[in-house]
Design a binder for these strands. Structure first.
Lengths: 184, 184
DNA sequence: CTATAATTTCAGTAATTTCTGAAACTACAG
DNA sequence: CTGTAGTTTCAGAAATTACTGAAATTATAG
């Protein structure tokens, strides 16, 4: 399957971007290809389109499955596995965020929590603990909030985002009186 | 300068995490060290503490400076450069976000915008463009919103985040009547 | 200026990551 | 069962990325 210039460009861009995200080029390309394809694809089609080995595709797909970013499908009278990406991009984004949280944020929070609990004698260590506490609190706050956002349905979310600047106004309005934020 | 077990643990964790983020181990370690240190540090101190070559530290610091994550300082009667990380963690987070946006999001948005403009003939390409449009819109929405959040001062933000679940309630309250979100 | 301290650059090497082809495994049709 | 299509695993090769030490550059003190 020869890729159109349009899809090729998309695929190559994602390959590059992947590298900057600790995801390898081929995995990025495989995902971009599946994401932009109207039909689900099988491993041979992917290998041929991207001109990489069959085994490399197998490993890439395994990786993408471990991130829950691709879905396995079957066709009648065809024993091969076909892969597709979920339709809903917001849903994809959520999956990605959840997975990153599980792999990166959660272990970091644990580490920080344990570290700040440790008894220390040195001033330097006391300072380090303060810094770790700050970092911990920020991450926890941010992920906690993000978890809330994730709970919203897509419609609410879109409206919310489209409000742009007004979000702040609305919130300030509701907040005044309870725990009054500083006037700008 | 020998690192305390506490700081060492923090430093090593960030080294590992760095690798998952397209940042190399040493750069992650250097940053963690500077971040957790009560005084600013010079390159020799860093090289010794982390047991890496002086030149490696020089490259790492250059990288961190390009991300505006470390600040250069000088001391009277000392010609060496000293480095420190800004105090405010929210500020650090913003810097990081802005920099990533500039390097990853913006080029991706351009690519997507151009790609969806391209005239195409194939059905497959038409589908691909629809997908790219979806992705583009989501990214734009998300970054636009994030830009708003960044504009808030830290106090508002903390209050907002601490509200947790209630944020949704407040927004739903204000939104009803204008562009009514779906009832859950 | 000159000497020296501090930093950066860079070519070569080391370490790590990615990729491949062959072999092993799995599942199913006949 | 047996044969075959499909998939995965894995050891080694290839490619990429990170690191070092030496040399070059820059800055400043005397």
């Amino acid at each position: 399957m020869k890729l159109s210039p349009l899809v090729l460009r998309f695929v190559l861009h994602f390959g590059e971007m992947g590298s900057r995200w600790g995801i390898n080029r081929t995995v990025g390309q495989i995902y971009a290809l599946i994401f932009s394809s109207p039909q689900s694809l099988n491993a041979d089609e992917i290998a041929e389109s991207l001109d990489v080995s069959r085994s490399n595709v197998s490993m890439g797909l395994k990786e993408l499955q471990s991130w829950s970013l691709v879905r396995l499908e079957h066709r009648v009278g065809d024993r091969r596995d076909y892969f597709r990406a979920p339709e809903d991009v917001w849903q994809i984004f959520q999956t990605l965020a959840q997975e990153r949280k599980k792999r990166e944020i959660d272990p970091t929070l644990s580490m920080l929590r344990e570290a700040v609990m440790e008894p220390v004698n040195e001033d330097a260590d006391r300072y380090a603990q303060k810094r770790m506490q700050d970092m911990h609190d920020l991450i926890e706050l941010a992920t906690g909030w993000f978890a809330e956002v994730q709970r919203m349905d897509q419609a609410t979310l879109k409206t919310l985002m489209k409000m742009g600047t007004r979000v702040q106004k609305v919130l300030e309005f509701k907040l005044v009186g309870s725990s009054a934020p500083k006037k700008s």
